[in-house]
């Protein structure tokens, strides 16, 4: 392989791959070719100075054998895998919404749960919970977010 993959065993003996961010897309493309046809989940862990992304892949032909892929980003950007697995589209939007990870090459990277215009990313460690945000909607159904308690709920 043209890139280096560190392999380790998880607590329950499952395979875990650690990969450099630069070679991440290459590895994922190869894994898809090896039969990992189901992207089970994408999640992210905030370590303040870096964000670790965790991908769970499954192989449907061998009883949904699970493989975990971990990668680390220091600038909150990572290559999108939505061209490899269609389901990554919404999973990546969720991580963008909650963690602020920017997926490069994503076809429609916008918030999926929170309304457009929300300030900050709620699952980050540095998110300020003391400042309440209020949501209102105009006649066309577009959300409006403000810090003013009189405008919205």
């Amino acid at each position: 392989m043209p890139y280096e993959v560190k392999e380790e065993k998880g607590k329950d003996g499952r395979k875990v791959f650690l990969i450099q961010k630069e070679n991440f897309l290459e590895l994922m493309t190869d894994l898809r070719k090896q039969g990992y046809d189901h992207l089970s989940l994408i999640t992210a862990v905030d370590f303040r100075d870096r964000i670790e992304l965790v991908y769970h892949l499954q192989k449907s032909e061998s009883n949904f054998e699970l493989l975990t892929v971990r990668t680390v980003t220091y600038d909150s950007t990572i290559d999108s895998v939505s061209s490899i697995w269609e389901s990554a589209n919404w999973d990546e939007r969720e991580q963008y919404d909650m963690m602020g990870v920017v997926f490069k090459g994503h076809p429609n990277l916008k918030r999926i749960l929170l309304p457009e215009g929300w300030v900050g990313y709620p699952l980050r460690k540095d998110y300020d919970l003391s400042k309440n945000q209020y949501v209102n909607m105009d006649d066309e159904g577009n959300d409006r977010v403000s810090f003013d308690p009189g405008d919205g709920w």
């Binding site: 749960l113 929170l114 309304p115 945000q133 209020y134 949501v135 209102n136 909607m137 959300d143 919205g152 709920w153």
Partner: peptide, 10 residues
């Protein structure tokens, strides 16, 4: 949720 509240009101 805050996103649902304006819809509920409408």
């Amino acid at each position: 949720t805050k996103k649902m509240a304006p819809r509920l009101k409408r």
